[in-house]
Design a protein around this nucleic acid. Sequence first.
DNA 1: AATTAATGTTAGTGATTACTTACATACATT
DNA 2: AATGTATGTAAGTAATCACTAACATTAATT
Lengths: 199, 199
Amino acid sequence: MGKKETRERIFQAALAIFSKKGYSATTTREIAAHAGVTEVTLFRHFGTKEYLFQEAILRFSPASILTDELDEKLTGDLHHDLKLLAKRYLTNAMENVEQIRIGVMEAPRNPELARAVCQIPIRLTSHLAAHLEEISKKGEMPEQNFKLKAQMFYNVLFQNVFSACTVPAIRFDFDEEEFIETLVSLFVNGLTGTEKDEV
Amino acid sequence: MGKKETRERIFQAALAIFSKKGYSATTTREIAAHAGVTEVTLFRHFGTKEYLFQEAILRFSPASILTDELDEKLTGDLHHDLKLLAKRYLTNAMENVEQIRIGVMEAPRNPELARAVCQIPIRLTSHLAAHLEEISKKGEMPEQNFKLKAQMFYNVLFQNVFSACTVPAIRFDFDEEEFIETLVSLFVNGLTGTEKDEV
DNA sequence: AATTAATGTTAGTGATTACTTACATACATT
DNA sequence: AATGTATGTAAGTAATCACTAACATTAATT
């Protein structure tokens, strides 16, 4: 068995158990067993439990693939663009549910992690807000609080992902397609509607 | 010092630390110190760490005060009703951020807790969905997927509360009033708008 | 003054934990 | 055949943890 595969197996096991139980409740013994490896091997590879944890969260997929790389695919059509963003976000998030749960759970214990976690929604919402602003300037949408609405857009998406990985029993009792379509139409109407925000 | 006050101080300390660190990372020593009490006193009051934890989460405010008790105040005016629900939800949630975080974090470890936690959003969204259905029957709103949209409404609210108590640094960098107003107008337009959900 | 109830102090127990040391084994490369 | 590399086995260490036992102190009640 290659060294790399062993390392990877330990890593995947760590990810799964950290995600489920949190840092302190997870034991190196359990990770090793789950990876089909001795505890000694685990420590030979990662040195300390803390270092293994750092490795795990450093795999956080950068938010850039959810913003920069998508810019060229945005058309300016509200419905199309929102749908694209929602889909891309959901796909990406579902692939990283374990890191997401770790990030959220351990953030209060780990300031460095907290900062990294915060960056993701900030980046996503300001990206969307800027795009909405652009569309609005073309006169297809009244001026409004785009930052807040962009935040709400991602709030809905994120909350859905998070509840799915917190209580897997919930999952989607509805179609993902339907979820996205409902979300998008909600926001298309919500953004182009006539009733303005009165504060 | 009365026995009750001591018990209450221990309880409050437990709530705060469990919420911040999660169950396993929290030590009885720390709780006792934070409550200004000896560890022995803590055990005299609660017996075991697990029992103290159970006590803490059993204080979960029932969702009923967010549904049943509000029914009589609902007018049938969409804007008014959504605003009322959002306000009541935010007020209540902000008073119980610690229990909320504990509930979410420890749910995967504690099936009984998970079930209790799940009930809250389920109850809230089906309550709102039923109300929207009613309004719709009066002809003021097209038929649509009310359950999903009700869920999204509370998703936005909950996510905001949860991120605030996960990374307090975020907090509201905007006015709560403005947040609610923006949310409500988003959903009023989103629900009464002309573009329907195409699946 | 005597009693009682709540807490403090001190010291400890056994279990678990992260992590280590020393040595053995299996396998591939040279 | 010899060597190196990745892993396993066995045993153990020091620290921490939840939790307990025995006795002392304080303050209110009787």
